[in-house]
Amino acid sequence: MDVGNVLVWAVWFVAAFACLGSGIAVVSFSNPFYSALALIGNLASLAVLYLLLSAEFVAAAQVLVYAGAVMVMFLFVVAYLGGRADAPWAGGASWQQVAALSAAGALLIEVFLAVGLEASDRLSEEPPVEAFFGGPHEIGRLFLTDHLLAFEITSIVLLVAAVGGVILGSHTRRFEPGVDR
């Protein structure tokens, strides 16, 4: 194992543990502001993992779209609502928490079994890929040839979401007189 390999492993190790740690931080902070900040860290470490998987374009899109646009919107809403902190694990009955934990554990075991049974022997070796793999050229070609329908449907979904956001954000008084306050 040469120096470059060790370096890749070290970067992967740090990024994976930062990812898991900030994921735990997201769900356990009581203040939603800190949760959103931890999610930014999570997204950044995920972008590093994407780079290690030679997905340069997706990593750039992750940082620009998620950590840039979506999280700014999140932080705006958190600041608009005011940082009302609530106790992390106090809400709901205790059977609810037990059910949530067991459901999450069941999902985890299910995913592990599915992935492990399906592809455990094939995951260890990495096939060599071309230099343009994961670049904008390759992704653009796939989007406009093989996955054109998904591309167009995505644009419709984004349009509907924008219209819905505008309607939800406008004054409800105008649409439902007498209901508001």
Binding site: W12, A16, C19, L20, G23, I24, V27, P32, N42, L49, L52, L53, D86, P88, G91, G92, Q96, A100, L101, A103, A104, G105, L107, L108, V111, F112, V115, G116, L123, S124
Partner: peptide
């Protein structure tokens, strides 16, 4: 390898049932 470890993040997200 990497994928199976980081699925845990998704399962962690399921844990959240609060605000």
């Amino acid at each position: 390898m990497i994928a199976s470890l980081l699925f845990t993040i998704g399962a962690l997200g399921v844990l959240v049932r609060r605000s």
